[in-house]
Simulated scan of single mutants.
Amino acid sequence: MFKQFLKKCYIIGTVPFNFCTMSNSWPDRIISGIQPTGILHIGNYYGAVKNWINLQNSNEIICSIVDFHSITLSYASKLLDHKKLPENILLMTACLLGCGLNSEKSILFLQSEVPQHTQLCWVLSCLTTVPRLARQPQYREKSENIKDIPSGLFFYPVLQAADILIYKATKVPVGKDQLQHLQLASHLARKFNALYGETFPIPELIFSGNIASKIKNLRNPHKKMSKSYPDKLSRIEITDSPDDITEKIKKAVTDCTSQVTYEPDIRPGVSNLVGIHSVITGRSPAALCDEVKHLNTGQYKLLVAEILIETLKPIQKEINQLLNDKSFLISVLKNGAIKASKITSDTWTVVRKKIGCHYFL
Rank of each mutant, 00 (worst) to 15 (best):
Q4T: 10
I11N: 08
G13N: 11
V15D: 06
T21I: 13
S25T: 11
I31L: 15
I34Q: 03
I34F: 12
I39C: 08
N44C: 06
Y45A: 02
N54I: 08
Q56W: 06
E60G: 01
I61Y: 07
I61N: 05
C63L: 15
S64F: 13
Y75D: 13
Y75L: 13
A76K: 01
K78N: 14
L79E: 15
L80D: 05
L80F: 09
D81N: 15
K83H: 13
E87Y: 11
N88K: 12
L90I: 09
M92Y: 11
M92N: 10
T93E: 14
E104W: 08
S106Q: 09
Q111V: 06
T118W: 00
T118K: 00
W122P: 00
L127D: 08
T129V: 04
R132G: 04
A134N: 11
R135P: 00
K142I: 09
D148R: 13
S151R: 10
Y156H: 04
Y156K: 05
P157G: 00
I164F: 01
L165R: 02
L165E: 07
I166M: 01
K171E: 09
G175F: 12
K176N: 07
S186L: 05
H187A: 06
H187D: 15
P201R: 01
E204H: 08
I206V: 14
F207R: 00
S208P: 10
I211T: 02
I215K: 06
K216C: 14
N217T: 11
H222Q: 08
H222T: 03
S228M: 14
R235G: 03
R235L: 05
R235I: 08
I236H: 07
D240H: 14
T246R: 11
K248C: 01
K248A: 04
D255E: 14
C256T: 15
D265M: 09
D265C: 01
D265P: 01
S271R: 02
N272R: 10
L273S: 12
S278I: 13
S278F: 15
L288R: 13
K293G: 00
L295T: 02
Y300S: 05
Y300D: 07
T311G: 01
L329Q: 10
G336H: 06
K342V: 04
T344I: 04
W348F: 12
W348T: 00
W348A: 02
W348Q: 03
R352D: 09
R352S: 11
K354C: 03
I355F: 06
I355S: 07
Y359I: 10
Y359F: 15
